[in-house]
Simulated scan of single mutants.
Amino acid sequence: MAVDFSNAVTTDEGVQVNGVVMHQIVEQCEGCERIKEFEGAKYCGTYPQPAAKWRLGICNFSTHTKTAPGKGKAKVNPLKASKRAAKGR
């Protein structure tokens, strides 16, 4: 759900949209297609606190980052693995 900044209000806390305070984007957000500009500052159009999304790694809303396929190990069924080992594969 994209935020509509047409009804945004500047308060002491920051920019408030529909009762939610929006925080400015962080450096990792640069290049994302979801960035909205309001009164010369850049905000995420999807999430009010962009820094929180980047705290644990890559933001799941980002449009400019890609995850590498096959990074994790595939799960192996232990029963099938033991049968393959018994057959000599």
Rank of each mutant, 00 (worst) to 15 (best):
D4A: 05
E39C: 05
R55K: 13
C32T: 02
V3C: 03
G40A: 14
R55G: 01
K71H: 02
Y47F: 15
K87A: 14
G88A: 07
C29W: 10
V20P: 05
A51L: 08
N18G: 12
R34H: 12
T10N: 01
R84C: 01
Q24I: 07
A68V: 14
V21R: 09
Y47R: 07
E30G: 02
D12K: 13
V9D: 09
K66Q: 08
G14A: 10
A74G: 08
E30M: 12
A85V: 12
K66G: 06
R34E: 06
Q28K: 15
T46M: 09
Q24F: 00
C32F: 04
K36Q: 15
G14P: 13
E39M: 14
I25V: 15
G31H: 06
R55L: 09
F5E: 07
V15S: 08
N18Q: 13
G19D: 11
N7S: 13
S6N: 15
K71Q: 05
V21F: 02
Y43Q: 08
R34W: 06
A51S: 10
E13L: 12
T46P: 00
Q49Y: 10
S6V: 03
G70T: 05
E13M: 04
G31I: 08
G31T: 07
W54A: 03
M1S: 12
F5S: 09
V21A: 01
K66R: 12
P78A: 11
K66F: 10
V9I: 12
A68P: 00
C44L: 06
V26T: 15
A85F: 13
F61K: 04
E13S: 14
G31V: 07
G40V: 12
L56P: 00
G70I: 02
G40C: 14
G31A: 10
R89I: 14
R84W: 04
A86E: 14
G19M: 12
G88N: 09
M1H: 08
T11L: 02
L79C: 00
C32P: 00
G57H: 08
